[in-house]
Amino acid sequence: MKEHDIERLHARNNQVHLSFSNIMLVFVLFFLFIPLIVVVTYSFNETKEMNFTGFTLQWYKKLFTDSSALWAAFTNSLLVAMLSSITATILGSMAAIGIKWYQFKARKAIISVSYLPMVLPEVIVGVSMLIFFSSLNINLGLFTIYIAHTTFNLPFVFLLVSARLDEFDYSTIEAARDLGATETQSLFKVVIPSILPGILSGLLMSVTMSLEDFVITFFVTGAGSDTLPLYVYSQIRYGVSPVINALSMIVILGTMALAWVCKSFLKTIAANS
């Protein structure tokens, strides 16, 4: 190939074409990010108006000094997210291990049932939870939210850990037993470290889903136990407060930081296994 040919090839690769895939790319990016940019921009807007009048940090100040109801909701969200994700991770991992390696009656039935909360519409799950709790006379509140979140988080943990277990060679456990480990020791020294990436991604996924859930939480919440999404929704009914915009900005930054930390963390684990 002659030199000018190569140059022409490079030029062609660098040219942006008006092809279908490029147009789709622009559309997708536009719809994904424009709302976020708008929210971020308005969080620095002086007035509540929909046109930009001047730069200010007053909404951030208000967010951190004068929004106790918001922070109470945030604490609720965090508390529920932590507890439900940890519970779901423990239960889901144990379920995955049990179903993978132990033979018992109704094993197949349990596998299909455990995916139900994942595939059912959230409204159905929410309504049935509500009916269930009220028929048992359980007061709606943080506890019921915790139970509900654990329920819908469980299948995700189960799925992720099961996938990891499928790659795990059972004779590794026999090797551990063979070398003198008891059943418990082989669980903690061999099985759990090997499937740890699956367990951790299950945990992270649970935290995220619990933090953002609206529909199911809406059905099972009680007076004074609003989570952050519910609180934000209730505020928006009285017009968009720029404080919410400021909160959005904080959440966007926080999520990006978390995603970055998780990615590099999971990468180190993956590199070590």
């Binding site: 004779s171 590794t172 026999e174 090797a175 063979d178 070398l179 480990a181 470290p193 090997s194 740890l196």
Partner: peptide, 18 residues
């Protein structure tokens, strides 16, 4: 198995991956 004084070499090696 852990109380018998025998050890096994497995077909799949069964090394601890982590």
């Amino acid at each position: 198995p852990e109380k018998r004084h025998v050890n096994t070499i497995f077909q799949t090696y069964a090394l601890f991956p982590h």
